[in-house]
Design a protein around this nucleic acid. Structure first.
Lengths: 215, 215
DNA sequence: GTTAGCATGTAAGGAGTTACATGATTTT
DNA sequence: AAAATCATGTAACTCCTTACATGCTAAC
């Protein structure tokens, strides 16, 4: 109920998994991560953090209430908080880590749309190769479905067709086709095991006691 | 107040400018026009049509209230309505045409973002070359701004950088760069007058009494 | 005469933005 | 001390989707 955008939530959990952070910093990282024209306002982020906290996935490490006087004292320490305001640094709880792992693994239809796919891809290093392939293939067939729809509806079309409309459609088609080729390349690389080894943190295989995590 | 999404409104006005249509049909055309993964539900379209009607930009030609008996009678005519339910066919009023023209001409910041740009581009055949160039250049500099932001923020970045994250960013960057090249091509073509002549309907210059429509 | 598909419509809610309000810290 | 920047937060509004409700017409 209090749940804010699934993609955003996943991204926040993922970033906090890497390192504890406060909202302001999180936002900057999120903009790069969700990328490409997204802005992400505080009006989205802060309520999301609150909801995640209420659900017990993250906790706030408020670094001492810090009255004006205490702040001056703290400043003397060289590795001290050195923050501006009462920064609220969030970190993942055990439940949060678990939720993140589950959410990443999930490769249902929700994982194929633009937003969701981007975030999942960004955290691919934390998954195993079969999961990666599943998600990449899902994304690809979703795009191919789109291509099919558009191709048929423009073909059987006495739809308005001046040269600009056509040019726009051609460009859109080409963009999607390009992404399909990209995905195909990634899938091939994944299958030949080319990528799995490049990932610099093999530590991602921490809790792999159960080998039954294939499906 | 009653105004629904500026991009959608523009698209509806544009399509109805071509030919009167009922909602169901409009939706299909809009999906192709706004294209690329958009779905557009009735919950968006119908309220929008109502609002446009209330503002006097479109009117409904209800083709005779058509009681069950009247329908049978009507069916006999070969070129009769042949519709299922009480189709409501909308057409543009004079005010609607005017509004459409003004909205198209408008090349403020609102015209640079994804949605808005796409729709405007689709109706480029109804504008003049200077307007087209203005919009194309605006769009391009908006994209270049994005590129700049991302480039600097990833450079000065000790942002999380595993190979997947990098790959995602590389692909995104490339996509935007590709669109910039596309725009540049279009602008060049526009400047050399290559495109203006291709447009098959020079009838778009109907009401051009005033030659002062340059700005 | 019931099912399937065309056609219109509404209510509830989700995901996000802008604009505002507030306050601490650093720089000028 | 004023201004700029860092930092958190809320309220109102926008645009859109899903799910539902309704009913006509055609076809089986």
């Amino acid at each position: 109920m209090t749940r804010r955008g699934a993609a955003l939530e996943l991204a926040v959990l993922g970033l906090l998994h890497d390192a504890p952070m406060h909202g302001y910093e999180l936002r900057k990282q999120l903009i790069v991560l969700l990328g490409w024209g997204r802005v992400l306002s505080y009006g989205t982020l802060y309520p999301c953090l609150k909801a995640l906290g209420k659900d017990g996935y993250i906790v706030a490490d408020e670094p001492a209430p810090k009255s004006a006087k205490a702040a001056k004292a703290a400043k003397t320490g060289p590795e001290a908080v050195r923050g501006r305001r009462n920064r609220i640094v969030y970190r993942l709880t055990a439940e949060g880590k678990e939720r993140f792992a589950h959410a990443l693994e999930e490769s249902g239809p929700s994982a194929w749309d633009d937003e969701s796919f981007g975030v999942r891809f960004a955290f691919f290093a934390r998954t195993n190769s079969p999961t990666r392939v599943r998600i990449l293939e899902g994304r690809r067939s979703r795009l191919e479905e789109r291509l099919e729809n558009v191709r048929t509806s423009t073909q059987r079309g006495r739809e308005r067709a001046d040269s600009y409309t056509l040019e726009l459609q051609r460009h859109g088609l080409e963009s999607v086709e390009r992404e399909v080729r990209w995905l195909t390349e990634l899938i091939d690389r994944e299958r030949s095991g080319g990528y799995a080894e490049i990932a610099e943190e093999p530590a991602a295989v921490k809790k792999n006691d159960k080998t039954s995590e294939t499906s």
